[in-house]
Simulated assay, not measured.
Amino acid sequence: MIYHITFREDWEKAKANGEYVTESLHKEGFIHCSESAQVAGVLDRYYAGKKGLVKLTIDPAKLSSRLIHEWSPSTLDTFPHIYGPINLDAVVEVEQLN
């Protein structure tokens, strides 16, 4: 499984639209995701003090978009990136974080 942190309202929009997309998909060409051990660091770096967050658990086998694990020089780690929208049936769990 891989994970994506987002705001509850963005997940609700995705459910209404039939797929999940992010600003990074439009700007960088992919959606940032994490392995389980990377989630805490992502929360600390990018979401400190933010409210209304959810963690999407994504089954890579169900993705209709391409998944590539790529090196991040800023964190010196490899992260999963999804090159396209996330189809809703690939999201197998949504966990309220705060």
Score class of each variant (00 low, 15 high):
residue 75 T to V: 08
residue 77 D to V: 14
residue 24 S to Y: 05
residue 33 C to L: 06
residue 74 S to K: 12
residue 71 W to F: 14
residue 42 V to R: 05
residue 32 H to S: 09
residue 67 L to I: 07
residue 5 I to T: 14
residue 40 A to K: 10
residue 56 L to S: 07
residue 30 F to V: 02
residue 69 H to I: 01
residue 2 I to V: 13
residue 60 P to Q: 04
residue 38 Q to V: 03
residue 64 S to D: 07
residue 24 S to M: 11
residue 15 K to Y: 10
residue 36 S to N: 13
residue 32 H to D: 00
residue 61 A to L: 11
residue 53 L to S: 06
residue 10 D to T: 11
residue 65 S to Q: 06
residue 64 S to T: 08
residue 11 W to G: 05
residue 23 E to N: 12
residue 36 S to C: 06
residue 22 T to G: 04
residue 32 H to N: 08
residue 41 G to A: 11
residue 65 S to N: 08
residue 49 G to M: 11
residue 63 L to I: 05
residue 24 S to T: 13
residue 21 V to M: 09
residue 29 G to W: 02
residue 31 I to T: 05
residue 68 I to H: 01
residue 26 H to A: 11
residue 28 E to A: 11
residue 3 Y to D: 12
residue 32 H to R: 10
residue 24 S to P: 01
residue 21 V to C: 07
residue 19 E to A: 11
residue 66 R to P: 00
residue 49 G to N: 09
residue 24 S to W: 04
residue 49 G to W: 09
residue 37 A to D: 12
residue 22 T to Y: 01
residue 3 Y to T: 03
residue 53 L to I: 07
residue 19 E to C: 07
residue 21 V to D: 03
residue 12 E to V: 10
residue 30 F to W: 04
residue 37 A to T: 09
residue 24 S to V: 06
residue 77 D to Y: 03
residue 5 I to K: 02
residue 70 E to L: 05
residue 62 K to I: 15
residue 15 K to V: 12
residue 44 D to F: 15
residue 51 K to Y: 14
residue 30 F to H: 02
residue 30 F to T: 00
residue 41 G to L: 10
residue 53 L to C: 07
residue 7 F to I: 10
residue 9 E to Y: 14
residue 70 E to M: 06
residue 5 I to D: 01
residue 65 S to H: 08
residue 66 R to Y: 04
residue 54 V to D: 06
residue 3 Y to F: 15
residue 71 W to N: 00
residue 40 A to N: 10
residue 6 T to M: 11
residue 13 K to T: 11
residue 63 L to F: 08
residue 29 G to F: 04
residue 53 L to E: 01
residue 41 G to M: 09
residue 50 K to S: 13
residue 48 A to S: 14
residue 69 H to A: 08
residue 70 E to P: 00
residue 16 A to Q: 14
residue 71 W to C: 01
residue 43 L to I: 07
residue 22 T to D: 00
residue 48 A to Y: 15
residue 15 K to N: 10
residue 13 K to S: 13
residue 46 Y to H: 15
residue 18 G to Q: 07
residue 40 A to E: 13
residue 56 L to E: 10
residue 77 D to C: 05
residue 43 L to C: 08
residue 68 I to P: 00
residue 33 C to T: 09
residue 39 V to L: 04
residue 25 L to W: 01
residue 5 I to G: 03
residue 32 H to L: 06
residue 42 V to Y: 10
residue 54 V to G: 09
residue 76 L to G: 01
residue 77 D to N: 07
residue 73 P to Y: 02
residue 75 T to P: 05
residue 16 A to R: 12
